[in-house]
């Protein structure tokens, strides 16, 4: 029995040492230690030994098994490592080939700018309001203090539809609709599509605006300046210079054009800013008392401001687009860059 064990041990270690693969080693393990393996068979023979010899031989069997198992374990680990090394050595791909990716989707730049502006104003406590694009003359003009036959109407070439309806020329009628619907405090912005019958390199018959309106007690022109400064700094970067200068809109008074320091040249003067160093991006002002009269607000109790800006202009400045028509040509080679 002892000799048998010794032979088994020597033979096993020899075959482990010469085994070439993990599979061969596994086979050796089954042949020796498996249910029908040689060592297992020997162990079954223990029962026929003397009671006195049984513990000693039993111990010997365990020792041999441990030796074989440890040799097998070491050999398998080594064989596995070698196999991995061989695999890593032999497998190579060309990593310079392009990866696989699905076709990229993009939002239209107009949508991107509207989303960005809305989120800035959401942070300032403004919620989004909407209104119809086919609008009554009353909301688009009269309630905003554009009397019929007034020269100010010339500023906005209007597309007309029958029944005193027209395509709104600005998002300002949303101010009226909002104030008619709710009492102060009001703090809204209204992005939307607007129309003017005018078409060339800098004018599109359809374009987009965002209107803002804040009405509450004690709102000042300085507050308008504050809100617009925070807004432009967030949109165009901290410390963008902001300038308000007097202007005229029938529905605000005092009125202002709002300029930012030219984002192209930083205020030194360039072609885009016509060498002035300033870019006009917004019209704004304190809501005119005449507008409050139309929506039955009492101008003695409250005050407020309104502002409006062209989305296309801001998109063009943000992305350095020089021709507005690109925005509506829908050429995917253009759109996929956003």
């Amino acid at each position: 029995m002892r000799e048998q064990l010794e032979q088994l041990r020597t033979g096993a270690l020899q075959s482990i040492a010469t085994a070439a693969s993990v599979e061969q080693l596994q086979e050796i393990r089954i042949n020796l230690l498996g249910r029908k393996g040689e060592l297992t068979a020997l162990m079954k023979g223990l029962g026929s030994l003397d009671a006195s010899e049984r513990p000693i031989v039993g111990q010997l069997v365990n020792t041999v098994r441990d030796v074989i198992e440890s040799a097998l374990g070491g050999a398998i680990k080594a064989a596995e490592e070698k196999a991995i090394a061989v695999r890593l050595q032999s497998e190579r791909i060309d990593t310079s080939l392009p990866g696989r990716h699905p076709l990229k989707g993009t939002k239209h730049p107009i949508s991107l700018v509207i989303e960005e502006i809305c989120s800035i104003f959401a942070g300032l406590g403004f919620s989004v309001a909407e209104g119809p694009e086919i609008e009554h003359d009353w909301y688009n003009f009269e309630a905003l203090n554009f009397p019929p036959e007034h020269p100010a109407r010339d500023m906005q070439d209007t597309f007309f539809v029958e029944n005193n309806l027209l395509l709104r020329t600005h998002t300002s009628p949303v101010q009226i609709r909002t104030m008619l619907k709710q009492k102060p405090p009001v703090r809204i912005i209204a992005p939307g599509t607007v129309y003017r019958c005018d078409s060339d390199a800098t004018h599109s018959p359809m374009f987009h605006q965002i209107e803002g309106l804040m009405v509450d007690s004690g709102v000042t022109f300085g507050d308008l300046k504050g809100i617009l400064t925070v807004f432009t700094n967030q949109l165009f970067g901290q410390k963008t210079g902001v300038r308000l200068r007097p202007s005229y809109f029938p529905f605000t008074e005092p009125s202002a054009e709002v300029d930012i320091a030219c984002v192209i040249c930083g205020g030194k003067g360039c072609r885009v800013c016509k060498n002035s160093g300033w870019l006009e991006i917004l019209g704004a002002g304190m809501v005119d008392p005449e507008v409050y009269r139309h929506v039955q607000y009492d101008a003695e109790d409250i005050s407020g401001f309104a502002f409006g800006m062209g989305i296309e202009r801001i998109a063009m400045l943000k992305y350095g687009i020089s021709d507005m028509r690109l925005l509506f040509e829908n050429d995917v080679r253009f759109l996929r860059q956003f």
Partner: peptide, 17 residues
């Protein structure tokens, strides 16, 4: 207009979701 200080309105919170 350049002499008007820029201030932030002290106003009631009205923002809707």
């Amino acid at each position: 207009y350049d002499k008007i200080p820029a201030t932030m309105p002290v106003a009631r919170v009205v923002s809707d979701r």
